[in-house]
Amino acid sequence: MIFNKGELFSGPGGLSLGAQSAEVISPTGELFRVQHRWANDYDPAACETFRHNICPDNPESVIEGDVRALDIESLPPIDAFSFGFPCNDYSNVGEKKGFNGDFGPLYTYGVKVLNIHRPLWFIAENVGGLESANEGEAFIKILSDLEQAGYNITPHLYKFHEYGVPQARQRIIIVGIRKDLGLQFRVPKPTHGPGNYRTSKHALEDPPIPANATNQEYTNHQSKVIEMLTHIPPGENAWYDGLPEHLRLNVKKTKISQIYKRLHPDKPAYTVTGSGGGGTHMYHYAVPRALTNRERARLQTFPDKYEFLGGKEAVRKQIGMAVPPMGAKVIVEAILKTFARVPYNSIEAKWTFDNTKEEITLVKNRVREESIGYVVK
């Protein structure tokens, strides 16, 4: 079975790349996979990157523009849908305006797609801060709207480093399967843990980045920044106690931990971000410099052949805002197994949602070693 997928807030295509990489063979020999049908994003450079890598033979399928002006009813029919609705107003970094911000209500356009096009399944993605936005009311409202659109929903906080991504990145992923299908998605069991996490050194050096790789521009640093970085050990930041006095930053307010923080070669990287001024560009563990965009893309599990289009800062933004393709592949593969009736190990989702009471119940994570990845009513 081939699922034709539409996507809102598609960014540079990380989720779509992961989805297209997932394939499952059913017990009867049928191939289950996903293919691109259409996508929308307001960022011109991200749209160009998506077209260039995901659908070079069908560039008109990527619709550039504000989702609020999109004619959703006229979009081609789809079997699957994904939307990483903007996280600006839910992030733990910033003012956390939730529904009161400019971006908070944009998830409703994803709900509109579900109500109009009725795809068989969907994936919704956002930052972990969504759970606490508007004192938790935003999360409940979003889950309620998705469930009322006619879907069995499974919300979970995915820690991507537990699935082979060389980066400590946590995101809330909500998977929904249409209720009339009689299927229930289960969270795939993590594949990595202490002792076998993929490290930043593994990501950047195994194999080495080719000399002709794209998006490999280096940052021109001031001599003082280079000197400071030489005194900061791997895993430490600008607030390291051993930093000479003349290199210390004069900051009186909150000291953000990622300022001039160097990667640790033996640990997953800290979270790749798409914005921020000096000191927030991520810094190499062995060389006193900021990472290149290609190195950031490696930490996000994009292959070297995936070329990002646009200026240097536009590319940085695209990479930081993207869903790691490897993480997306794990989730989509579990969805395909659910439809193909292929068993897989799973764990309890972090949350269960009872829409009759409009409340979220926290569930302790525990591995279900013998579970099968679907439930037929």
Rank of each mutant, 00 (worst) to 15 (best):
E162V: 00
P155Q: 06
F103K: 15
V330Y: 06
G84Q: 02
K312R: 15
V272R: 00
E162F: 00
I335R: 03
D180K: 05
D304G: 01
G310F: 05
E95S: 13
L146W: 03
H192Y: 10
V175F: 03
K159T: 05
V287R: 11
F339R: 03
I331F: 06
V165C: 04
Y107L: 03
I25K: 13
R186Y: 15
L249T: 05
G104T: 03
A124V: 08
P155N: 04
T108P: 07
E236N: 10
P244R: 07
N152A: 12
N126V: 03
N152I: 11
D241L: 12
A39Y: 03
R289C: 06
V93W: 02
N88S: 15
G278N: 12
V127I: 07
R118M: 09
L263E: 00
G11T: 04
S223I: 15
A286G: 11
F185Y: 11
R171Q: 10
T271M: 07
V34R: 01
P188W: 04
E23G: 13
V187Q: 08
R289G: 07
I116K: 06
P233Y: 08
G193T: 08
A203W: 00
T219R: 14
L183R: 04
I331Q: 02
Y218W: 14
S74T: 12
L75G: 03
D71F: 10
D304A: 00
A19K: 09
Y374N: 08
I177R: 01
N215F: 03
V225Q: 15
V376T: 15
H161G: 01
P207L: 07
V24A: 06
T28D: 13
A168P: 02
K5D: 09
I256C: 11
C87T: 06
Q167W: 01
V62N: 00
Q258S: 14
I173H: 09
I259P: 06
H52P: 10
E60D: 15
D79P: 05
F160P: 00
E137D: 13
M282I: 11
E369V: 12
R368H: 12
I256V: 13
E359F: 14
N365Y: 14
P210T: 07
G101L: 10
H192E: 09
A133F: 00
M326V: 07
P56G: 06
L106G: 05
F81L: 06
S21Y: 05
P233G: 09
N220Y: 13
V363N: 14
E307Q: 12
G242R: 05
T273G: 12
G327R: 00
T254F: 14
P27L: 01
N100T: 11
K357Q: 13
N134D: 09
V93H: 07
Y283W: 09
G274I: 02
K179E: 12
S91L: 11
A314D: 09
P77H: 09
K267P: 01
T28E: 12
I259M: 13
H246P: 00
G150L: 02
K224Y: 15
R37M: 14
V323C: 07
W38S: 03
P324V: 00
V376F: 12
R33L: 14
S16P: 05
Y270Q: 00
L299E: 02
